[in-house]
């Protein structure tokens, strides 16, 4: 552009305002909070994995260590903690199953399987597996 003779319109460079997200953004909406809770379940699932590893270690260290570990697990605090873990694991599983239809589109001929049916199948399979494991453990 021939800038010498170009119009000298009063130039204004816009300065955009960029609001940043507050650290507490996830408290703004119930749906955000539920999401963060779902993400938080990972911490509890990881904690349970560590407990399992510790259990295996105690088993490998022989009778005395095993008894101590069992005693630790039976403390009220530990039981409460396991209650938390169970609640989060159930929440995690349920959210996982309810989200399944977003990724999975099942077509039968020209019809798409409705989301509710997909969720029901998942939950039924989950309940079935859980019942089987419970049966194995309880009948042993």
């Amino acid at each position: 552009m021939d800038t010498e003779t170009a119009p000298t319109y009063k130039r204004f460079r816009p300065s955009a305002y960029h609001p940043s997200m507050a650290l507490t953004w996830w408290m703004k909406k119930p749906s955000y909070l539920l999401y963060i809770l779902r993400e938080l379940t990972a911490v509890f699932v990881a904690a349970y994995a560590i407990i399992l590893l510790l259990t295996v270690r105690a088993l490998s260290q022989g009778g005395e260590a095993w008894d101590t570990w069992l005693a630790t697990l039976q403390r009220p605090g530990m039981i409460l903690f396991h209650g938390f873990i169970l609640a989060f694991a159930v929440y995690h599983s349920l959210t996982w199953f309810t989200l399944a239809p977003t990724a999975l589109v099942v077509r039968i001929k020209d019809k798409v399987l409705p989301a509710s049916a997909l969720i029901a199948v998942h939950v039924a399979a989950w309940v079935g597996c859980s019942a089987f494991i419970a049966w194995v453990l309880l009948s042993a």
Partner: peptide, 25 residues
């Protein structure tokens, strides 16, 4: 990270959440 808010906000029911998860597969 699968929050699902996009599909709730969409005025035309495009369901971007679904589109993204299907791509992830």
């Amino acid at each position: 990270t699968l929050i699902g808010e996009c599909s709730r906000a969409c005025p035309k029911h495009v369901d971007p959440t679904g589109a993204i998860q299907r791509y992830k597969a």
